[in-house]
């Protein structure tokens, strides 16, 4: 196989893995939007704060990795529940802008509180995974990315099952569909709101561990969350399948763009290519590839 083709496959392969990891974080956003209609601008900060907690537990308190991850998960679940109860429930029934502003404010607070409580330095979040790349035909894969992509797939499948098959998942879809009617069915809507935020916490904790181990843990990690927007705009704000497809598209596009365009312009295409695509997508399919087409009717 020619080198040019090999290079192309390399970019695609890495793009797919990175894309699945974007999808995991985007899932946190989608879960909240699907159930509560709230747009969470702090998703990246959720990931950051989870990574900070896990790495602090590992390093400052010497906890074993499994315990640190459990602490991260438990902490983020509690955070999700607490956030819903203290900030978002009082905003129920207010204009959607109020919720958006609240999450933007929350993002700023988290970016400030994280370093304040745990220090500003870049921390490591070492996972017991070999750093030797694996060669698979034309693909050249790093183990941590493989594990990250695997965990992402697992959770995307689990949440997909939850929404399609489980009683609570179906009830959550009902809440997302029509809150009033869900109430008339005896569904306690607030409980499902809280559950959605807690689930976003779980996803963020996992995303924090994976992304933190790859990029290092500091405030910059929150920037990963910015990639959520092209992912969910492309895939659809309320679709789990859309999060996967959107994640894959963003992962592949940014890798391919970086591979082919960066040499000529000196780098940086990775950071804006997904947004260029997002703007294009907004013009063509504003509800995303898999999103509900409600935007049309407004």
């Amino acid at each position: 196989m020619s080198d040019t083709l090999n290079f192309f496959f390399l970019l695609i392969g890495n793009g797919v893995l990175i894309g699945l990891m974007y999808a995991l974080i985007a899932l946190g956003f989608v879960l909240v939007y699907k159930a509560t209609d709230a747009i969470n601008f702090a998703q990246g900060e959720f990931v950051m704060i989870a990574a900070i907690v896990v790495s602090a537990a590992l390093q400052a308190y010497g906890a074993p990795l499994w315990l640190a991850i459990l602490i991260g998960l438990g902490g983020m679940i509690a955070f999700g529940f607490g956030l819903e109860r203290s900030v978002l429930r009082p905003l129920l029934g207010r204009p959607i802008v109020a919720v958006i502003m609240a999450t933007i404010g929350l993002a700023a607070i988290l970016r400030g509180v994280g370093p304040l409580a745990f220090g500003t330095g870049v921390r490591n979040l070492p996972l017991p995974i070999s750093e030797d790349p694996i060669f698979l035909g034309p693909f050249f894969l790093t183990p941590v990315q493989l594990v990250g992509a695997g965990v992402s797939l697992l959770f995307l499948a689990a949440f997909g099952w939850f929404f399609m098959k489980s009683r609570q998942g179906i009830a959550m879809r009902a809440v997302a569909n029509n809150q009033q009617v869900a109430m008339a069915m005896g569904i306690h809507v607030e409980r499902y709101f809280a559950l959605a935020w807690a689930m976003a916490g779980v996803v963020s904790a996992l995303g924090g561990v994976i992304w933190g181990s790859m990029l290092g843990v500091d405030v910059q990690l929150a920037l990963v969350g910015l990639k959520v927007f092209p992912v969910v705009i492309l895939g659809g704000l309320d679709s789990i399948v859309g999060a996967i497809v959107g994640g894959l598209i963003v992962g592949i596009v940014e890798n391919v763009a970086a591979g082919y365009i960066d040499p000529y312009v000196g780098g940086g295409t990775k950071d804006f290519a997904p947004y260029a695509l997002m703007i294009l997508a907004l013009m063509i399919r504003p509800y995303g590839i898999f999103g509900k087409r409600t935007i049309e009717r407004v």
Partner: peptide
């Protein structure tokens, strides 16, 4: 699914 949601309670 709609009918099962009625059983939810």
């Amino acid at each position: 699914d709609n009918l099962m949601l009625g059983r939810h309670v």
